[in-house]
């Protein structure tokens, strides 16, 4: 446990433990992207407004562009790279984003998918207003959101099927 101004931290990212030496002023987004090569988390605004840098920290959605890496010592982080199934297959939400063509330029997609997973973990049967409410911290400039909302609706329906082997929890899906 970090108690003073030491710079060594341990991050568990997508199930893998990393010991990292960071400056106190390093942002989580830059450590994920530059140190760990996980470039799926995007810089979009740097001020917590667009949601492109969304990651899960200890299972909760957070904005990596306004999070200090040192403050994440000992925590579990899941990024978009960590949500495919262990066998490499896509998570149902990813499948539906593809199937519904909810993806255009793709820059908001990682954050959107993580928020969709967070929603379906809390609320497996969301209404359309609940879906829109949950992703309102994530800006998409291309789609007008309809494709994204449809994809989340379909993913919810698909994950609710009893036969679905895919668990709804993105965190558990991490390797």
């Amino acid at each position: 446990m970090l108690t003073s101004c030491t710079n060594a931290i341990i991050l568990t990212v997508n199930g893998d433990e990393h010991m990292l030496v960071v400056e106190p002023n390093e942002l989580l987004i830059n450590v994920l992207r530059n140190e760990l090569g996980l470039t799926g988390s995007k810089y979009g605004c740097g001020t917590g407004q667009c949601g492109a840098c969304t990651v899960l920290i200890d299972g909760e959605p957070a904005l990596a562009c306004v999070t200090l890496a040192v403050a994440c010592d000992g925590k579990e982080i899941v990024t978009i790279e960590g949500i495919a199934r262990p066998d490499g297959g896509l998570h149902p939400i990813q499948e539906e984003f593809l199937g519904e063509n909810a993806v255009q330029c793709g820059f908001c997609t990682p954050g959107m998918i993580l928020m969709a997973g967070d929603l379906l973990k809390r609320n497996p049967h969301p209404t359309e207003p609940e879906i829109r409410h949950h992703i309102k911290g994530n800006i998409c400039r291309c789609t007008g959101y309809n494709g994204i909302v449809r994809a989340i609706q379909h993913a919810a329906a698909r994950m609710a099927e009893p036969a679905a082997a895919d668990g709804p929890d993105l965190v558990k899906e991490a390797r």
Binding site: M1, L2, T3, S4, N25, L27, G46, T47, A71, D73
Partner: peptide, 17 residues
């Protein structure tokens, strides 16, 4: 202003009490 990186130096404390 730079919203990509923080450049000011500071010491980080995470007290437990």
């Amino acid at each position: 202003v730079n919203t990509r990186v923080l450049i000011n130096d500071f010491t980080y404390h995470v007290p437990s009490t």
